[in-house]
Amino acid sequence: MKIAVVAANGRVAQKVVKEAQERGFDVTAFAREDENKSGAATYIKKDIMDLTKEDLAGFEAVVDGFGAWKDEEQPMHVKTSQHLCDILSGTGTRLLIVGGAGSLYVNPEHTVVVCDGPDFPSEFMPLAKAQGEELAKLRDRNDVNWTFISPAGDFQADGERSGKYILAGEELTLNSKGESIISYADYAIAMVDEIEKGNHIQQRISVVRE
């Protein structure tokens, strides 16, 4: 399977590249830096906003690994994913987006999300709001085979690769220990599983460590 990973030098994207290549996928990484930190065998220096329809032609799936932490950069979550939607519009290529947990629902009516809670850390609020808006904009797109994958609340960069996870939906899901936790490595497994055999087209799904 031939896939592209954009913003590929990010830490989550690196794990996705590694997982995909270990399964024998043909991975092309795109990032704006000179240095290839992604681990991909094929690396193309190109900013996500400069990508064209021609750049992404022929890939079965595109993974959007974009992430921003500075408050002033948060609008780029919507801009980058919508740009990818525009250039993949009307194609059969899947677009899989590394999402956030702040927009997961915490009630059956789907009217309250995680970041609405009184204990949600204020420093993560701009990011949560931006990714929530990103998801809302994706829901308006019926011309793209997108999938938005939210991690658990405790998203651990250096957590172990257990190889086990629970695939869930729109609501914050806890494991048998009452935890909302997943490592980047296990998230990458779930992402590549979705590319390989998933069919959650135009849906948001979530993952938590088993």
Rank of each mutant, 00 (worst) to 15 (best):
A13N: 00
K45T: 08
H83E: 00
Q156D: 14
N142Q: 14
G117W: 09
S206V: 01
M1P: 05
I3E: 02
A68Q: 10
M191G: 00
G58F: 12
S122I: 11
I182T: 09
V16P: 01
N9H: 09
I201C: 09
E123R: 10
K46N: 04
I149H: 02
D50N: 12
R32L: 12
W69D: 13
T52W: 11
A7V: 06
M49S: 09
A101V: 02
A20P: 00
V78N: 01
R32E: 09
D47Q: 09
E123H: 11
K15H: 14
D143K: 06
K37W: 14
N36E: 10
G153F: 07
A61W: 01
S89C: 06
C85R: 00
V17P: 00
F30M: 04
E33N: 15
A61L: 05
V63F: 15
Q74M: 15
D116A: 06
M1E: 06
E72Q: 11
D154I: 14
A157N: 12
M76L: 15
R11M: 13
V62D: 00
S176R: 13
V78L: 10
M76T: 11
I205Y: 00
C115K: 12
V192H: 01
F124I: 12
D154W: 14
L174A: 10
E171I: 10
E194H: 09
D116Q: 08
P75I: 06
T52F: 07
K45C: 03
R204T: 02
N9K: 08
L51S: 01
Y105Q: 02
E33S: 15
C115M: 15
A13H: 01
D186T: 04
G67Q: 11
P118D: 15
K177T: 04
Q202C: 10
V208I: 06
F124N: 12
D143N: 12
A68T: 08
G99N: 02
L96A: 02
F148C: 00
P118E: 15
N175H: 09
A157E: 15
S122L: 15
H110M: 13
I201K: 07
E196C: 03
D158M: 13
F148G: 00
E35Q: 14
V113Q: 08
L127Y: 11
Q156F: 05
A101E: 06
V114S: 02
G24L: 03
V208R: 05
P151N: 01
D34Q: 13
L84E: 05
